Amino acid sequence: MKTIIKLVLIYIGFQFLGGLLALPVMFFLDKTYMLAFALILASLMMIWYLFKKDYIRINEYTWSIRSVSALSWMVAYGLGAYFLATWLNEQVDLPNVMEDQFMDLSFNPLGVLGIVVLGPVAEELLFRGAILGFLLKKLSWRNAVLTSALIFGIIHMNPAQILYAFLLGMALGRIYYKTGSLLICMIIHVMLNGISTALTICYPDAQSLGEMSGVAPEGWFLLVGALLLIGGSYYLNRMRELPFWKDPVLAEETASVESINEESKE
């Protein structure tokens, strides 16, 4: 667990360092630009560090969408998790100590870049690629996904985001375990943050998905979310297990044997 603690501390450290480096921006622009620059710098530093230290697992699946069908079902699964996680979060109604900052960043071009693109990319590389990738070598996949999701939720530190981030972390963790694709996780994370940001811009005074659409969330949103989750889960359960998590060397040997067997059949 030392590796995970180290990565979490480095992530927090980059958040503070990004804030310090962005402080001079306040002398030329406003506070919102400073927050945006801090988020962008912290994300870029985290991405750089993970690649420099070889924490990211690179194989044939990492940057693949597997197939159009797989990507479509995973997007549906992610949307289902988003609807249900948002609804549950609204029921708990924990204090949102970062609401003003998120609102300001949502109306700032650089803020949108940080929230919608760079932030999700850095988080997927860290929480799925590095942390979950490490845990999958040590624990059962269920415990690994649960542990990484708990870390993902707690690290947000904003009470209003913890449950939401935990539930999405569970969904994204399962997707990464089954597909081995960080690219799919990034696409879904970017999409969901983009939806949240777009809704904030279009409906700044709304307090729930129901208010934004005029539909009670416990009605259509729960039904649609459940159907998408069920469909995505069914597809995930049918996917072939990847042999790569426990032993990369064995994985290469397995892939070679499978390739030889396929050639001999031809």
Rank of each mutant, 00 (worst) to 15 (best):
M26W: 14
L17H: 05
S181A: 10
L183P: 01
N108C: 05
G119K: 10
L71Q: 15
L50R: 07
L41V: 09
L229F: 06
Y11H: 04
L20V: 09
L7V: 05
Y61W: 08
M26G: 13
M212L: 10
G19R: 02
E253S: 13
M239Q: 10
E60K: 15
L39E: 06
A149Q: 07
S196Q: 10
S43G: 15
N108S: 12
E90P: 00
S67M: 06
E266N: 06
K52M: 03
L17P: 00
L71W: 13
I154E: 12
A216S: 14
Y61P: 03
G78V: 04
I230F: 07
Y234T: 13
M103H: 12
D247E: 12
W141P: 11
M186F: 02
F134W: 10
F134D: 11
Y234M: 14
T200P: 02
V92S: 06
Q91A: 06
P243S: 15
L50F: 03
T179W: 09
I56S: 07
S69N: 10
E99N: 00
R174H: 13
E90C: 00
I47G: 04
K6C: 08
A144V: 04
R174K: 14
T197N: 09
E124R: 13
L79R: 07
V8A: 11
Y82H: 05
L125A: 05
A216I: 03
A130K: 11
P120L: 13
I175S: 10
L125K: 08
R128W: 11
F83P: 01
C202E: 10
N261T: 01
R66M: 06
A206C: 06
F102S: 01
W245Y: 09
A206V: 03
M1E: 07
M1C: 08
A36N: 08
G133H: 04
I65E: 10
E124Q: 15
A122S: 13
L242I: 09
E218V: 14
Y33D: 09
K2M: 11
W245R: 12
V121Q: 01
W141A: 14
I40H: 05
N59H: 08
L126Y: 01
L118G: 06
N237I: 06
I5T: 14
L227H: 07
D93K: 00
M186W: 02
I5Y: 05
Y164K: 03
K265P: 00
L150F: 07
N108D: 10
A226T: 13
A255N: 05
L105H: 11
I5A: 15
W73A: 09
V75E: 10
Y235W: 10
T32R: 00
S259Y: 03
M239K: 08
A122T: 14
R142Y: 07
M212A: 14
K31R: 15
V68T: 12
D93S: 00
S259W: 03
D30H: 06
A144G: 14
T62S: 12
Y176C: 08
G13R: 13
Y203I: 07
N108K: 07
R238S: 13
V92Y: 02
